[in-house]
Design a protein around this nucleic acid. Structure first.
Lengths: 105, 105
DNA sequence: ACGATTTATCGTATATTTACGATGAACGAT
DNA sequence: ATCGTTCATCGTAAATATACGATAAATCGT
């Protein structure tokens, strides 16, 4: 795009769009599910179960971390990722609010 | 990307990611709100209230239509867009389900 | 039929996303 | 101190997204 017009919207709209963007790839949806289902949340475990290279998984984790949906905790040479339940709740509430608002035409 | 790996995920994950993608731009968030708030849902009315050119708004509408969140109804030379409440409810339920599933690590 | 109005589509430029191999940085173990 | 393990980052290539002006298509009114 020539220039982004995103800054012309409200902070709430920009933030919500950003959260949606972080959920806009099936790998990231799956990662969020896996972080909850698996005992271990090391990056290697995720890479093993995803059809993606380690570098790519790391990029997806970075995107989820960017919007705060997950946190990474250093554990020796490994890193344990986990869902940030607070951020998750905030996102859920905002999306619920949006969906409730837009009912019908 | 060299090649998309999206087809390696479940249909549910792909679809949910697609819905999230359609919500991943503030203009599209705003359009959904406006379609509900405004009496008229003609494209021209949307263009008037958005900081974007007509062609760009049309593109955003196309994206929302692609995933089924809105429908367009021909009304003479104009087109009246409205939210598809059924698709909206489906999206809301799927997102709720996802958010409820992923609690904590 | 003609002109005005409304919206979609085309063409295009630039930015961002997705993907991977290679490399680097941090740590534990020997 | 060195080696293997783990993960992030860099560099890069290709796909997709965003934005706009210009143009086409459809419709209504005259």
């Amino acid at each position: 795009m020539a220039v982004s017009k995103k800054e012309e919207f409200t902070q709430e709209e920009i933030w919500l769009a950003d959260v949606a963007k972080s959920l806009s790839h099936p790998a990231r949806i799956k990662i969020l599910k896996m972080l909850n289902e698996m005992n271990s949340c090391m990056v290697g475990s995720l890479v093993d179960k995803l059809p993606l290279a380690q570098a790519t998984v790391s990029q997806h984790l970075k995107e989820l971390k960017r919007v705060g949906l997950i946190d990474g905790e250093i554990d020796g040479p490994k890193i344990c990722y986990c869902v940030n339940t607070k951020a998750l709740a905030k996102a859920k509430n905002a999306l619920d609010k949006l969906f409730n608002k837009i009912g019908c035409c």
